[in-house]
């Protein structure tokens, strides 16, 4: 087992930054994880978001999951909720798309139009 001391150190480091974080408003990334999402490949997408948030040390971003969003044919579906903005829904997301959603949208505030449900529905009739 990796050492408990290491875990203790992580706890200390996190406690030191936790107060700064409280002021930030949160961006929420929600991945659909019902049978439909899981079968379509939602788990690697969820894990990729978690890894990216960890590796880029993004504070104020939480990654979570939800059940069936209701568009099973468009899974994996990812919803991004930013404070004071409308929800953005990305469809048919794969792990390779996660990097751009993080850098363009979550870090720089620019929605990746061609990954959105609106764009997909308009161009795949």
């Amino acid at each position: 087992m990796k050492s408990i001391q290491e875990l203790e150190a992580i706890r200390q480091r996190t406690l030191n930054t936790i107060n700064m974080r409280k002021d930030n408003q949160n961006t929420r990334v929600v991945v659909g994880m019902a049978t439909c999402g899981i079968a379509a490949g939602a788990r690697p997408v969820l894990l990729k978001f978690m890894d990216e948030v960890a590796n880029r040390n993004l504070s104020g971003v939480t990654v979570s999951q939800t059940g069936c969003i209701g568009f099973c044919r468009l899974e994996p579906i990812v919803e991004v909720y930013s404070p004071d903005k409308e929800k953005v829904t990305y469809v048919k997301v794969n792990p390779d798309m996660v990097g751009r959603i993080i850098t363009d949208h979550i870090v720089n505030g620019k929605v990746v139009e061609e990954y959105t449900i609106g764009y997909y529905e308009k161009n795949n009739k």
Partner: peptide, 28 residues
């Protein structure tokens, strides 16, 4: 056991904790 070390203020969804769990389980 992890929660016991982390206490109430630090949650399992802290990115660094996640990485620690990943490596710990992989090693074992």
């Amino acid at each position: 056991a992890v929660k016991q070390v982390l206490g109430d203020e630090v949650s399992l969804d802290t990115p660094e904790v996640m990485q620690w769990m990943q490596e710990s389980i992989k090693e074992e």
